[in-house]
Write a protein that binds this DNA or RNA. Structure first.
Length: 171
DNA sequence: TGCACGATCTCG
DNA sequence: GAGATCGTGCAT
């Protein structure tokens, strides 16, 4: 079952938590589908969040984060890994949720590789996409909260925000 | 027009 | 512990 299309209009922290246990459905070029349960996420919230790419303002790369929730934000990191994010919140307020883990797969770089994410997914609308959609999955009430990973440059305040969510099942 | 660096992973 | 590998943002 498809989720409410207003789901991604909530703030990034809420969406990151609620995304645990949801299902990412990937439709491949040959028409077959694969389903992945979301197990780990991170929230990036607003220009004031120094760990958020939008903290440097609107650029061609971050532009999509300023769109209303429900769009896909992807970017290349370390020249080899495509990171999958979902834009959240309202128009003109940059927020996104990074998918760090699905099923048994841990590590956001591996998530992008498993789902065959690339530049062409940038800006995709989840409510219209033929390749990617989110469906209601199982309720996750047992999860861990932790600081985000790999953002030492963001300074004490932002670096320590407990905006990483890890589902406790299947660990 | 050039350069340093990253929301990472894999292999020694 | 280092290398792979390249788009982005900022300095020239």
């Amino acid at each position: 079952m498809k989720i409410n299309e207003d789901f991604f209009k909530q703030d990034a922290i809420t969406v990151a938590r609620e995304l645990l246990g949801k299902v990412i459905v990937r439709t491949w070029d040959d028409g077959t589908e694969s389903q992945y349960l979301v197990t780990e996420t991170e929230a990036y919230y607003g220009e004031e969040d120094l760990a958020c790419h939008a903290s440097k303002g609107r650029t061609p790369r971050t532009e999509i984060m300023y769109a209303v929730g429900g769009h896909v934000y992807v970017y290349l990191i370390y020249g080899m890994y495509w990171m999958l994010n979902f834009v959240t919140g309202s128009k003109d307020h940059p927020e996104a949720v990074l998918i760090r883990g699905i099923n048994h797969i841990k590590g956001s770089g591996k998530v992008g590789r498993e789902l065959k994410i690339d530049k062409s997914f940038y800006g995709e609308n989840l409510n219209l996409s033929a390749r990617l959609r989110i469906e209601a999955g199982i309720a996750v009430t047992d999860f861990e909260v932790a600081p985000r990973v790999g953002i030492d440059y963001a300074g004490e305040i932002w670096k320590n925000k407990p905006w990483r969510f890890i589902a406790k099942f299947l660990q």
